[in-house]
């Protein structure tokens, strides 16, 4: 059993999706607990993250690891009963009138694979839906994605509404897509990111998660 678990960590680290799938199935058949298997996958993900920090892995490698993680989740459903569900800490969506979702989906996959719970609001999301989600969940981070310049007004409307509803101080607003420092200032956001891997680091920083700390055996699912 220990050997299977060690091999699983290595298979994730080397981004061997089919081997990961086969080892997870083998582990479940041999009675290894789902939580232990997820912990092993997280260990592998942590090693992938270290390769990225050392610059011998690229964003595509992180994406590949996140795809493997998502595949594992189809084999090991995350439930309250097995104790692996986590309260969402990040709310993300593409703002109204914009349907671009590549960057949004990638960062959601990366965050979840690093053990951070995420609510995905989808695309073309009206401002009130973002604000209601902040109020209802108490998430610490609101991620607003947009690749159109028309997104800037919508993002600004969202931060204005957060202010009006006295919710702004409860949440850090991170914008992503076709954005820069000027857009961040205009929108009234706290951070801007144009790179998914950096976006994950920003979220970890906000959540006070040490980049080099051990992953927890919990994942967020929505």
């Amino acid at each position: 059993m220990a050997n299977t678990r060690r091999m699983l960590v290595t298979a994730v680290e080397t981004l061997d999706e089919e081997k990961v799938v086969s080892l997870v199935k083998m582990g479940l058949n041999n009675g290894i607990s789902p939580l232990d298997l997820i912990e092993d996958v997280h260990q592998g993900m942590k090693r992938v993250g270290m390769h990225y920090e050392r610059e011998d892995y690229y964003i595509a490698d992180l994406i590949m690891a996140s795809l493997i993680f998502q595949r594992v989740l189809t084999l090991i459903p995350i439930t309250k009963e097995n104790g692996s569900e986590q309260k969402p800490q990040v709310i993300i969506g593409t703002v109204k009138h914009d349907i671009h979702d590549i960057g949004k989906n990638i960062i959601i996959g990366l965050l979840r694979s690093r053990g951070i719970g995420v609510i995905d609001l989808g695309v073309d999301v009206p401002p009130d839906v973002f604000v209601d989600a902040v109020q209802e969940t108490g998430a610490k981070i609101l991620g607003l994605s947009g690749l159109l310049t028309s997104s800037y007004e919508v993002m600004r409307e969202i931060t204005d509404t957060l202010n009006k509803r006295n919710l702004r101080s409860r949440v850090q607003v991170v914008i992503g897509g076709l954005v820069n420092e000027d857009v961040k200032e205009y929108v009234g956001a706290d951070y801007w990111v144009d790179d998914c891997a950096y976006g994950v680091e920003v979220c970890r920083h906000i959540l006070n998660i040490d980049v080099n700390s051990s992953s927890k055996t919990v994942v967020g699912v929505v």
Binding site: A60, I63, M64, L67, I102, I106
Partner: peptide, 11 residues
């Protein structure tokens, strides 16, 4: 799609 193409490059 970007994700599936990345899979193809690796697999």
């Amino acid at each position: 799609s970007l994700e599936q193409f990345i899979r193809d490059m690796y697999q």
